[in-house]
Design a protein around this nucleic acid. Sequence first.
DNA 1: TTTCGTGTATCACTGAGATAATACACACGA
DNA 2: TCGTGTGTATTATCTCAGTGATACACGAAA
Lengths: 118, 118
Amino acid sequence: MITIDDEHPTPPFEQIRTQLADQIRAGALEADQRLPSVRQLAADLQVATGTIARAYAALEAAGLISTSRGSGTRVRADQGLDDESRASARRFVQALQRRGVSLDDALSVVRAEWPRLP
Amino acid sequence: MITIDDEHPTPPFEQIRTQLADQIRAGALEADQRLPSVRQLAADLQVATGTIARAYAALEAAGLISTSRGSGTRVRADQGLDDESRASARRFVQALQRRGVSLDDALSVVRAEWPRLP
DNA sequence: TTTCGTGTATCACTGAGATAATACACACGA
DNA sequence: TCGTGTGTATTATCTCAGTGATACACGAAA
C-alpha cells in the first residue's frame, strides 16, 4: 500500500519511489512480482501517469525493478537486504520505540551517526 | 559543517533544516551553543538570508532551537536523544556498514521496519 | 493482422521555492 | 543614549521541478 502526503515537502513521485524501494528492500514485495501498471497506480493515487512513470524509471535506474513495454513492471530478483541487516534494523527500531522516539528522530540519528564522507 | 547539494531533489532550506536537526539530535551541537547568524550562514552557503531564516524558523517550530532578535540563535537545552538511543544507532550503523550497505538502504530498511500507523 | 494493455515521450502550465532589496523590531554593549 | 548586530517581515520577480493531458511505441495474445 502506498500513500501520498501532500503536506510533506518531498514531491509525490519521490514519495512513491521511496515507498516502493522500502517495500522491495524489506522483502515485502517478492521477486518477479508484478507491480500495478502506471495507469492503474496513477488512478489509485489520483496522480498523472507521468508521475508514476517517473518513479518507475528511477527504480529501474536503481536496479530494483525491471520495466518493459507491453509486459509491465516486475520486481527484480536478487534484491532486498540480507536477513542479518534486517534483524539489526528491527532491534534498532524496537529499542527506539520503547523510548518513544519518533521515526523522524530515528532517521535523523542514523544519518548523524553515519560516518561523513572523506 | 553544512553542505548543500544542488542535485538533490529537496530544496536548500530543507537540506539546511535537516542537517542542523541531525547535528542537534546527535549531540554534535551542544546545548546553548550559538548558531551562526542568518547573514553569516547565508554568505557561507551562498544563499539568500530568507532561505536561512526559513530553516531557522522551522527548527524553532520543532523546538530544537531558540531564536531571539538581537541576541541570535541558540541550541535549546533538553534536546538530543538519550545516550542509549544513540548507542543503539551506532551499533546499527556499524553492523550495516560492515555489510557494505549504503546510507540510503539503511534508512530505507528502518522506514520499512517501522510499524505502520493505525 | 488486429486488438489491447503496457511503458515512453512530449509539451504547456502551474505553483512552490529561491532570490534580491528593503525596511522593521529587538537586544546588547559602549 | 546610541550604534551595531541580530532575527523578522514584506514585496516583487524569477526560475524550474513537478504535474497533467495526450499521443506515440512496443509486446503479447487472440
